[in-house]
């Protein structure tokens, strides 16, 4: 009986280790993509691509990087992250209106 439980717990550890490994692979892939996005962003500015879509594309690249950071590096894609998501989306909503307010007050 004792042997059974210990082999069962060993099995559980192996399953967890495998899960951790899979998560790590996803994290390394997201790291590579983030490096790639950084290169594209700096490259666009260094090569002085002149057109009005440069600014929105730079912002978009930053947003994608942050999504990777939050969901993969900070584990927001995992179970049990309802409250963190609520907090972050709440914070981001207020952040959005703050920036809109600050910039438009000065412009107009």
């Amino acid at each position: 009986m004792e042997e059974n439980t210990s082999s069962a717990s060993r099995h559980k550890i192996d399953v967890h280790k495998k899960e951790h490994k899979e998560e790590m692979i996803h994290q390394v892939i997201s790291f590579i993509l983030m490096i790639l996005f950084t290169f594209i962003a700096f490259g666009m500015v260094v090569l002085e691509i002149s057109s009005y879509f440069v600014k929105p594309v730079l912002i978009l690249l930053a947003v994608i990087q942050v999504v990777f950071q939050l969901y993969y590096f900070m584990h927001m894609k995992n179970k049990g992250h309802f409250m963190p998501a609520m907090m972050m989306y709440g914070g981001l909503t207020v952040a959005f209106f703050t920036i809109i307010t600050f910039t438009t007050i000065i412009w107009w």
């Binding site: 907090m87 914070g91 207020v94 920036i99 307010t101 000065i106």
Partner: peptide, 18 residues
């Protein structure tokens, strides 16, 4: 961290304004 997001947003907003 949700609060920190708002705090940095106000600093970014100030920067963009100035």
């Amino acid at each position: 961290l949700g609060g920190e997001t708002v705090l940095f947003a106000s600093l970014f907003g100030t920067y963009l304004a100035l």
